[in-house]
Design a binder for these strands. Sequence first.
DNA 1: TAGTCAGCCTAATATAATTAGGCAAAACAT
DNA 2: ATGTTTTGCCTAATTATATTAGGCTGACTA
Lengths: 191, 191
Amino acid sequence: MARAGITADRLARAAAEVADELGFDHVTGSAVARRLGVKEPSLYAHIRNARELKVRVALLALQEMADQTAAAIAGRAGKDALTALAGVYRDYARTHPGRYAASRHELDPETAADSAGPRHAEMLRALLRGYDLPEPCQTDAVRFLGGAIHGYVSLEAAGSFSHTPRDTDASWAWALDTLDLALRARSANPD
Amino acid sequence: MARAGITADRLARAAAEVADELGFDHVTGSAVARRLGVKEPSLYAHIRNARELKVRVALLALQEMADQTAAAIAGRAGKDALTALAGVYRDYARTHPGRYAASRHELDPETAADSAGPRHAEMLRALLRGYDLPEPCQTDAVRFLGGAIHGYVSLEAAGSFSHTPRDTDASWAWALDTLDLALRARSANPD
DNA sequence: TAGTCAGCCTAATATAATTAGGCAAAACAT
DNA sequence: ATGTTTTGCCTAATTATATTAGGCTGACTA
């Protein structure tokens, strides 16, 4: 019988497509096998268990977002960089909702450490250098900024904003202005 | 045979306990039935399908959080109110991780409209009156604030902060200070 | 060219979701 | 109190997913 040529990579990619089209929790062994035209048990030569499928989508999403972010902030600083970085997350969540959901999937510590997760934190930290905040609160600012961006994007993706007529692009611009304002105020006025 | 006395309410409560103990995606018909000491098919007299179980947990969580928030912000204003409101979310996420996850579960529009979701938005709006922002951007501020709080709490709950030694309570205080600062700056300096 | 191995298969089992239909307890009418 | 209806839970059976065991064959390797 002709071989399908499954690799861990093609598998992750197929799973990511399922996630984007049907939702992250429809990433199941059978859905992925169907899409690849193989029988379900064949997957188990490449993955340990069905959970690993979701983990692979998460890793893929984290990496794609990190790559795009790196490209977006290269050569930018200050509010420009902030807008670019945050825009990547928002665009990614809108074009790849399933992968974005996957990127929030909880990973065990070793897997997380090997993922692109730390790169995200580093890039936030780099971005914040433009606001020169005093040492001790830089981590606070990374957490704050990461949370604010993720929170906005995830509420928007979940449809939590669609009950109010206000244009979400305008709200997004306002949010970025406010974040920039806050960070600048903070560096002028540290505690 | 002695009747177990299942009601939609006891069912939601049992499902919420499962969520907090095992995680929101372990909220399954069989887990809940086991916990209630009944056979799985018996549930289907009270719920339409297994998805509805999760929806009920979501509704319960939204309501509990809204009630606690209302109590917390009563008689407070400004930063005091902000601290109280945000504290409720954070505490809830830490004491009831499964329910908190459930509260982010996507609901169809009618269900969402009947949920405590709108109360959350109203309370945020009320809180923001203390910062008297000009009309057009009040919705922006609700979205920004909601996102920032949810984002921080959800990243913390997902363990995204545990790779860095910095105390998360300190970061939390810094985030609240920054939000307060930002909102005050915004009202002084609107666009 | 024979041998090993990898990659996919079929078969079989367990758990979750769901429907159909039975039986007894509770509620209700007389 | 008794007969009837309703309701709440059960058993049995079906379908989908997750997983293990073991077989066949096409593809590299000596």
